[in-house]
Computed example of a mutant assay.
Amino acid sequence: MNDQRNTHSLVIGYLLWIFGFMGAHRFYYGRPISGTIWFFTLGLFLVGWIIDLFLIPAMDRSADRRYQPGPNDYSVAWLLLTFLGVFGIHRFYMGKWITGILYLCTIGLLGLGILYDYWTLNGQIDEINRAA
């Protein structure tokens, strides 16, 4: 597949899989419903988490087909959300300065904004990239 269509990283997918019993890799690949289920059931009691070790390449290909590449990198945004989300750094990265400042002043809208972004970040970046 052309590197230009490679919107998500297989390496980051596997790194997030390490914490996958909490659904991180599933959110990253645009599967928020199963990510939420993994979060509340510890990766379907670790069975689903182990099975995902073999499913990650297919999830990566699916995300690469589904989302539009562009100026905003999905992996960068996800890393910023994961590690600096309470400060809104991922929102600044996407050019959403007002909500970035709001997250900065409210600890990610008391965590609810971060949860919202876990569900919608891929779609937000896709929308920005399509507009570019």
Results as ranks from 00 to 15, higher is better:
A131D: 12
V11M: 10
A24D: 06
F40H: 02
L10F: 12
G43Q: 02
Y67M: 11
D117K: 07
L16R: 09
G85W: 09
A132Q: 12
D60C: 15
G100M: 01
S9H: 06
V47Q: 05
L79M: 11
P32Q: 08
I89G: 03
A132R: 02
M94N: 13
R65M: 13
N72R: 14
G100P: 12
T36P: 00
G100V: 00
E127V: 09
I128K: 09
F83E: 03
H8F: 06
A77Y: 12
G70N: 08
P71C: 10
T99S: 15
H8V: 03
V11W: 08
F27R: 10
Y116H: 08
G35R: 02
L115C: 08
D64M: 14
Y93C: 11
I128S: 08
L15C: 08
I125Y: 10
R31N: 14
I125T: 03
T106Y: 05
S75P: 02
L121K: 05
S62C: 07
N122M: 04
G43A: 11
G95Y: 09
I89Y: 15
T99W: 06
A131Y: 04
L42V: 14
I50F: 14
S75F: 09
L42F: 10
Q68V: 11
L84F: 13
G23W: 01
H90W: 08
N6R: 15
G43I: 14
R91S: 06
N6M: 12
F54P: 14
G108A: 02
M59W: 13
L81I: 08
W17S: 12
F92N: 07
P32E: 03
R65P: 00
L109G: 00
T36M: 07
L16N: 00
G113S: 11
A77N: 03
M22R: 05
Y118V: 01
Y28N: 03
G108R: 02
G30Y: 01
I128W: 11
